[in-house]
């Protein structure tokens, strides 16, 4: 196998190397229960990153995901007594709507996605603060268990959050590989002008990618709300950058057209392993950020495939 062919496999090779390295230093890290818990702990972040992958895949960025998730925790808590399980659908529709607005501002008004999603994130933050009355809300335990009990708990030792994350991954993978939209997004990411020239409804597909990202962020928010049994407009803070990092480390660069949702799965696992390894290696709290940053540079340097980039901006 040539190096060229091997490059595609760098992300998961990096993941395996990291796992083995930490495993050598502390064998208990490799126990199945620990690895499953590690995967389950990252599932919310992973779902957010999954949606973001579609936007990064077309060369954009979604900075609203965290605020949309925050807002969703509030909406889910408020809607639970009224809609029951239907609150989930309501949240996803709202998330989809916010994503769509980002997409509309970005494609139709030609505002760069960095700014448009940041601005829409600000709107989501305001909605969340307004709806919650700027305080933390709590779900009624009985109602929560009745409507969303299936979201928490575990079957045969596998936590349900992990199962949901994997189902969503399968769904996103299907969209990416087997549906017209997936192919269209790849075409847009690889070369937008060529996609326009070949008659593709580029704007429509782009807006849909942003909307999908919003919907996935809402699902992540919903899972937060159920797990923590409540909502607040700041509950998911600190998730935005790690989610972006998960997408990038997995090998979906911001240039678009390369990578995909499976890469994001590996990227999220790499982030999880780096984070957990810090506990195993007994790295002090004050040293963790710098450790994370340096390992991140190493991981990105290893995983990204530069052969398709003409210039590195």
């Amino acid at each position: 196998m040539t190096l060229e062919k091997l490059k595609k496999h760098f992300p998961w090779i990096t993941l395996v190397i990291l796992v083995v390295l930490v495993g050598i230093m502390d064998p208990s890290f490799l126990s199945p229960t620990n690895l499953i818990r590690l995967a389950a702990d990252i599932s919310t972040l992973f779902i957010m990153a999954l949606g973001m992958t579609f936007v990064i895949y077309i060369g954009g960025i979604d900075l609203s995901a965290q605020s949309v998730a925050n807002m969703t925790t509030v909406i889910a808590t408020l809607m639970l007594p009224i809609l029951g399980v239907g609150a989930a659908l309501f949240c996803i529709v709202v998330g989809f709507g916010f994503g769509f607005v980002s997409g509309f501002v970005s494609t139709k008004l030609k505002v760069p996605s960095f700014i448009s999603t940041l601005a829409v994130g600000g709107i989501a933050l305001s909605v969340g603060q307004y709806a919650s009355g700027q305080r933390a809300l709590y779900m009624d335990a009985e109602m929560r268990d009745q409507a969303f009990g299936w979201l928490v708990g575990s079957t045969a030792g596998i936590p349900h959050e992990l199962i949901i994350a994997l189902v969503l991954l399968a769904l996103a993978y299907f969209v990416e590989r087997r549906m017209t939209i997936g192919r269209a997004l790849k075409a847009i990411g690889a070369g937008e002008l060529a996609a326009v020239a070949s008659g593709l409804q580029v704007d429509r597909f782009k807006m849909f990618a942003f909307a999908l990202s919003g919907a996935f962020a809402a699902i992540a928010g919903l899972m937060f709300a159920v797990k923590l049994s409540g909502g607040s407009p700041v509950i998911a803070n600190g998730f935005l950058l790690p989610a972006i990092v998960a997408v990038l480390v997995g090998g979906t660069p911001l240039t678009g057209g390369v990578g995909g949702v499976l890469n994001t799965f590996i990227g999220a696992m790499i982030v999880a392993v780096i984070r957990t390894s810090m506990l195993y290696l007994e790295i002090k709290a004050t040293d963790q950020q710098i450790f994370f940053g340096i390992v991140l540079i190493a991981a990105i340097a290893l995983t990204i495939d530069r052969s398709k980039m003409k210039t590195v901006k």
């Binding site: 950020q289 940053g293 540079i297 990105i300 980039m309 590195v312």
Partner: peptide, 25 residues
């Protein structure tokens, strides 16, 4: 960014973490 050929978005994002970490240290 230049020597490791990492796009500036990712390189600077990581260096941001390093900076925050360094100041915490």
């Amino acid at each position: 960014h230049v020597k490791l050929k990492i796009p500036s978005f990712m390189a600077s994002l990581s260096m941001g973490f390093v900076g925050i970490g360094l100041s915490l240290l």
